[in-house]
Amino acid sequence: MLDAILNFEILRNTFYTGLIVGLLAPLLGTFIVVRRLSLIADGLSHVTLAGISFGLFMQKKYTLLALTPFHTGIIFSIIGAIVIENLRGVYKAFQEIAIPITLSIGVGLSVVFIAMADGINTDIYAYLFGSVAAVSRSDLYLVLFTAVFVIVVITFLYKELFALSFDEEFATVSGIRAKIIHYLFIIMTALVIAASIRIVGVLLVSALMTLPVATAMRIAKSFKQTIVYSIIFGEVAVIIGLITGYYLEIPPGGTIVITSAILLGLTLLIKKWYLAYIYKG
């Protein structure tokens, strides 16, 4: 694959995007998991699918070239994020209901737009399961921009995000502007989901945000360690997944998630053996 990466720009773009997404998804995923919002990624990815289908439909019917399906996906994802955050405010006692509401609206809209664009085609298949050959140079730039934005925000607001995730009441009393930070956080999540969809696809994007974190949480001692280990597991899964996906001609979404699941299984087993060894010793 190395040869191919060096020779074909589109593979190179995919590989770089994969590396970026392998860092961003677990990074945000750590905050999402500890806030017990794991399903938010699923909700948003389906809204993104609605945006992508809308983009495909517009491309087909009106040859609207200025906006690609990737762009409309990002726009829908951000709108979905804002809707989820508002719904969480409306249903204070049942905050999780915001997720199925947006998820079903996302799927509903996707079905309508896909039908209007004359059904499923290979494009939509790549969006559902990921693809090793789908990232254009402009997509890569957009993903890079997302990465810079997310990393800058998390660096400057790390303590605030951490405090809000742990204990919202204390954080609010300490003078943290919870509302603005919540919005900023969910918009970052929307951007990272839209970026990840190119690699792992709509159906598996939440796995890349949660599986590496679930693995890291079993062995990390601190929150910072959890983030670092999540990113390592995320990157390993993306690299192995992309290479095997390329050689076996399987969409990388599948291979990346299976690799993540294997890493999780191994970690659980090793931890179990280790604990048994400690107790014996």
């Binding site: 500890v34 303590k159 954080a171 003078g175 929150f223």
Partner: peptide, 21 residues
């Protein structure tokens, strides 16, 4: 709070410093 939260005692205390940040 959620008991499984992966944070050390030191990290929890550090949250008290947010308003200084």
């Amino acid at each position: 709070f959620s008991r499984g939260f992966p944070a050390t005692a030191k990290e929890v205390v550090s949250m008290g410093l947010t308003s200084k940040v």
